[in-house]
Design a protein around this nucleic acid. Sequence first.
DNA 1: AGTAGAGTTCCGGTCATTGGAACCTATATT
DNA 2: AATATAGGTTCCAATGACCGGAACTCTACT
Lengths: 254, 254
Amino acid sequence: MSPARTTAGAPISSIGRGIAVLGCFNERRRALTLSELSEKSLLPMSSTHRVVAELVTGGFLVRGSDRRYRIGTRVWSIGQLAPVSDQLRHRALPTLARLYEETGENITLAVLDRGQALYVDRIGGERSVHTASRAGGHLPLHTTGVGKVLLAWQSPEAIEKYLSRPLSRTTPYSIVDPVKLKTELVETKNRGYAIARQESTAGNGSVAVPILRGGRCVAALGVVAHLTHMDIPRLVETLQMAADSIRKELEDDH
Amino acid sequence: MSPARTTAGAPISSIGRGIAVLGCFNERRRALTLSELSEKSLLPMSSTHRVVAELVTGGFLVRGSDRRYRIGTRVWSIGQLAPVSDQLRHRALPTLARLYEETGENITLAVLDRGQALYVDRIGGERSVHTASRAGGHLPLHTTGVGKVLLAWQSPEAIEKYLSRPLSRTTPYSIVDPVKLKTELVETKNRGYAIARQESTAGNGSVAVPILRGGRCVAALGVVAHLTHMDIPRLVETLQMAADSIRKELEDDH
DNA sequence: AGTAGAGTTCCGGTCATTGGAACCTATATT
DNA sequence: AATATAGGTTCCAATGACCGGAACTCTACT
């Protein structure tokens, strides 16, 4: 009776609907009820129910004893085959482990993804400070050490494009002035590493270096620590050696 | 004209088709052409083409310069929200890093998934031996240390069920006799750890211990090393302390 | 017991989906 | 250069899988 797939205006394919449902999950919302999925995906309840049932059948969603849906192990498993995991994370992990043991601080590895810093992995125990980053999570480019590195090594046009949009403020120390940020980016690229001071989380600072391949910055390696015990020159040296080690690791085959 | 979705017998939903296409990828085949996807998913070329195009639009697939399709970063990113990654891997990672640094050998963390050992993570550098395991990959339960642990702590019925099916042989040393394997499993549970000697890859041995929560074995922690330099009693002690550390980590909230 | 909210099933209408066929486009072979 | 082959893309008529409102069931809470 009613025209199918016109509720939200543009018609969406079945696969698009499935992806939309999976896209409802994020770091804050890792377990959702059917109603929440229906609301967030903008699909009617009955349609959501059907789509969800098919995703459950395929192992892409699982329903817990609390009746909430979570991302299935199958998605995780297939996701491991993505180049970012297979080529980068896997090869860098031993170096990250060594860095973590050496410094005892949070170690992060990030790449540029959809205009944000995508955290490819993070090692940080209870002994190290609490941070906002999490493997698979996105953070802005201008409030973190790794983000600044990823942005600084972009083309001038890409940098201008990023600066032309409003810069979000996460803490009172976040740099939201495009002119000031541009100066900082130039400085970052010149000296070869980035610093962030309480720009993402209060009390924390971070240092980050690029992992370069043929002049391109393919990833950024960083440390997050409490500002009071952050020996920057020493961290930079340690990070640069580790970045070089990862770069070599990436060169093997392909 | 032709009846839709009856080529392969049972009708498959659109979402099921999307999942089938994504399911074509595995550790051996991380980059596939459209033809290969069509062949493996049992879908006609034109249908595959449409499904793939929608997956690309949604960021679930990407096409490289070699015209091959690969799993998109988005799948990896969403997969990180799965409990196996979010609850287990993330919390265990610092301990795995410490273990790796302490031993210098391959460290593996696995859970039971669909009758196989699913590797939740693996840290192993070029210094450690080459192994078959990889994060996100599956291996049989009876040919690896972690697999034996996961199986040994299952219910007697589940063990019988596993033993009733033919046991695959990976190396000449693989235990394929159900009676012999059962004895080994009993012994494993009694002594509290598992050993495998060249049952998965030639020259390698492994030691593994369970991570227990309320009597249930939620994961297995193992080391893979060259048989000649494997100090079993020492590795067992190190692993058990690490397993206890991970168990405590899992107890924090929920 | 009653109520609200969440979740599930039903079902007729219809439009997105389907796949064969035709058509491109590179790469290899003659 | 011409031809062949495989791989990939577009087209289009036919149709049955998908659509979602409505009715119903289940669960949790008062």
